[in-house]
Nucleic acid binder design. Sequence first.
DNA 1: ACGAAATGAGAGCGGTGCTCTTGATTCCGA
DNA 2: TCGGAATCAAGAGCACCGCTCTCATTTCGT
Lengths: 231, 231
Amino acid sequence: MTTVRGARARARIEITAAIKDEARTQLAAEGAAKLSLRAVARELGMASSALYRYFPSRDDLLTALIIDAYDALGAEAEKAAADTAGLRPLDRWTAVCRAVRAWALAHPHEYALIYGSPVPGYTAPQDTVAPAARVGLVLIETARRAHGGEGIALPPLPEALRPEAARLAADVAPDLPPALAVALVVAWSQLFGLVSFEVFGQFHRVVEDRDAFFAAAARRLGQDVGLLPRG
Amino acid sequence: MTTVRGARARARIEITAAIKDEARTQLAAEGAAKLSLRAVARELGMASSALYRYFPSRDDLLTALIIDAYDALGAEAEKAAADTAGLRPLDRWTAVCRAVRAWALAHPHEYALIYGSPVPGYTAPQDTVAPAARVGLVLIETARRAHGGEGIALPPLPEALRPEAARLAADVAPDLPPALAVALVVAWSQLFGLVSFEVFGQFHRVVEDRDAFFAAAARRLGQDVGLLPRG
DNA sequence: ACGAAATGAGAGCGGTGCTCTTGATTCCGA
DNA sequence: TCGGAATCAAGAGCACCGCTCTCATTTCGT
């Protein structure tokens, strides 16, 4: 359906990619705040006004970068899950967590773009919701596999959370018990709490051996969603 | 020591406060990205150049707002702890967590300023580290009180984390067992993971009954640092 | 009372996002 | 094939930004 019709369409695709590449370079170098359309255009040897043929506004460019960042992080998580397909659930879980952390540390500004303050507008554009869900889906899948065999022991839900838990489970993973669905969402947010604190410098002069710290915390996270240390 | 010497010094204090107030207003309305020194000066009826007599740069103004935000949040946490002095440790813990979340939801842009992407520079100015630690200290204190009576049962630390745990405990709370110190730092980051996901919209169309969800998650967090449901 | 320091206002520099117009190029259907 | 329509690059320009410099005024300490 999106067949390239001619030289013009081909050029458009290439130029769009070149703009995003250059923008990503500037993002990695200076952060989202200092990303400037004029500087991108300058680096690409084109007039700044021409750039608006490809991205209607700076926010649209940033949104494209956000989607790419979500996709890149999601791909890393999926790759980690695939590479550890034969391992025990808890080891797969920690592998996925490690992959998320490694990507975040390698691309701090892109990470900040997606898990820091939402800079463009207050509500995320619709196009970002699907890519944003990829890491969460990997975590769910990892837990689902573990749950396939025998049931996982989780502490009972407090009374007040029962309706929300049922609704949440129906939405994100209908075949999972509500208590597990809740635990997964909690662990999901806590994983990014750990990563964000490290990337954003909150652990400065607090945690030194961050590899060991994260490994232990991620393992605990996995146990909190019912993954057992052995067997 | 910082006695007001005359009308001039008094005016300087008042104007500095007025600038910060107006800046905070714009921050709350539009976010840090759209905070403009010129707009602040315009609103205050002064020349934009005059504003530089009070804050050498935009980043310095933001830094002042960051410190104030840390202090405001820290005060809320301390107040919650003080107001629940007689309650059981786990209830105190959840009260502190609730206070943090409530402040964050009430001041999303200020929260983003301190726990979102670090916008001014890459490393936080020295003046921000003490205010930034206040919430953490409240959490530590809450756990310390609980620990006063009998020892808290915590799962043993993995071998690889022992040295870091010992160092960390010596740094943040010498009288606490290393396992508890680690658990506290983990819970600290996870608390802000929960709050950040809610404030930054990651729970959009995922978690609906966020009050109940957060209450349960915060309670679990307290249990993870060894606070018992009853007793 | 007077010199020094602090303060305010204005002009101006280089940068930004974005719009509008103009002219050239490419596409596509009659 | 050819001519209208769509697309595109470029330049000028607007309003805004952070920040600096200069210069007049005001306040302070001695």
